[in-house]
Design a protein around this nucleic acid. Structure first.
Lengths: 224, 224
DNA sequence: ATGATACCTGAACATGCGTTCAGTGTCAAG
DNA sequence: CTTGACACTGAACGCATGTTCAGGTATCAT
């Protein structure tokens, strides 16, 4: 029997290096040097960094310009620069639970994704933590969201007053987007459209917060 | 040997260096070194390159990370890569006409701007022709647009059936966002929210189409 | 044990590369 | 003519950085 390879795909250290290069590039606008990678990934020797970079190059995760200072870059789905990619995990429908990223989820599993300019993001969340859903049906209208819109969300189970959240109401078997307010006897789910009435949820009733809405994008078809 | 003296602005050599840096970056995905710039711009001495880079830095054309290999980049208003900048010209309010870009308008006049990933644009319009407006007040609710949303538009005076357009109704002194449909006796302006009634405009009544809506972006504040 | 393989250390080496400086020639102002 | 700015040369300096090597330490299959 052939031995069991310790790491079939990317090891923890490979991932850490990869992440660091991306972060560094985003922060300083140029790639890190070998020594900088080592210092920030807990690797004491430059040769080990080189060792890992060779592997990452062979596995097609990065590209290197040998002999050239800082001549390396990640071959990423996420183009460098001021934007990042958010995976579209599925659809958000009134009568179905909300798809949520698994803990071991990584970008590349998603069928589709959208790119968001960093400057558009109010919060400086890591792109990794965010995910997006496409709205199906027009049952989210009270959240000013229409069929075909894309909702970018940050996964969370908690919410503060005023957050716009995606919630699953097991009792009603219903998914909805609302502004969240905690009140004495329970929660108030306020539609974004001020002409519509809020939903009151008693403390006794179950309520699952799936994520905070960070952004809504509506692409309008233009025949041009 | 006669050296050509240049006036206050960018000299021929400044421009050549600037162009080279951009070309090099595009080609090799990382910035050039001082010596590479010299070789390719007919400058024999590294100190002269450094000399020019200093000037370019002072004049705000490039950014440098001193002491760091290849730590320089051009400050480009139009970010390279897969996105472009759309100027935010002003606010769109129900009771006011819609701001439209002047013919000689250029980006840099805008106080603010938003960056849009190219992949998000349904139409491959040139960024230059597009502009954006921030929605003020909640009178656009029937277009599923809320206060604070950003509407990206393409300026036009014509529209086809089904286009979402920004129109100015001189008779009613009103700005509104609606789906546009031509009918026998005039035009039908259909709210995006299907629960709301359309506005009928007779042929005799004036109606100014200011632009087609290409995209709606809603940034939701997350206290995080 | 033994060897193979993956992972790691530490250091040395060669050169890439930004920086600095002493000069040179030109041109315009005083 | 002197002075000083501007554009530029050539070379040296020295740290930054990629590369290489000689040698460790585990784990595992033979």
């Amino acid at each position: 029997m052939m031995m069991v390879r310790k790491s079939k795909g990317l090891g923890e250290r490979h991932q850490k290096i990869l992440d660091f290069i991306e972060d560094y590039q985003r922060k300083y606008k140029h790639p890190p040097s070998i020594r900088e990678i080592g210092e920030n990934c807990g690797i004491s020797s430059t040769s080990v960094v080189n060792y890992y970079l060779d592997q990452l190059e062979k596995s097609g995760h990065i590209e290197r310009d040998r002999k050239i200072s800082r001549g390396l870059r990640v071959i990423s789905q996420t183009p460098v620069g001021e934007m990042f990619r958010v995976p579209v995990l599925g659809r958000i429908v009134a009568g179905e639970p909300i798809p949520v990223p698994a803990s071991d989820f990584n970008y590349f599993d998603a069928e589709e994704s959208v790119e968001i300019a960093t400057s558009l993001m109010p919060s400086r969340e890591k792109g990794k933590e965010l995910f997006a859903l496409e709205v199906q049906g027009n049952s989210m209208i009270d959240a000013m969201v229409n069929e075909g819109d894309i909702v970018v969300m940050k996964p969370t189970q908690e919410a503060r007053n005023g957050d716009m959240v995606a919630v699953w109401l097991p009792d009603k078997n219903e998914t909805t987007l609302k502004y969240f307010y905690k009140e004495k006897d329970g929660f108030r789910l306020q539609p974004a459209n001020p002409t519509m009435k809020p939903i009151m949820v008693k403390k006794s009733e179950p309520l699952e917060i799936k994520g905070k809405v960070v952004m809504v994008i509506r692409k309008v078809e233009v025949v041009s």
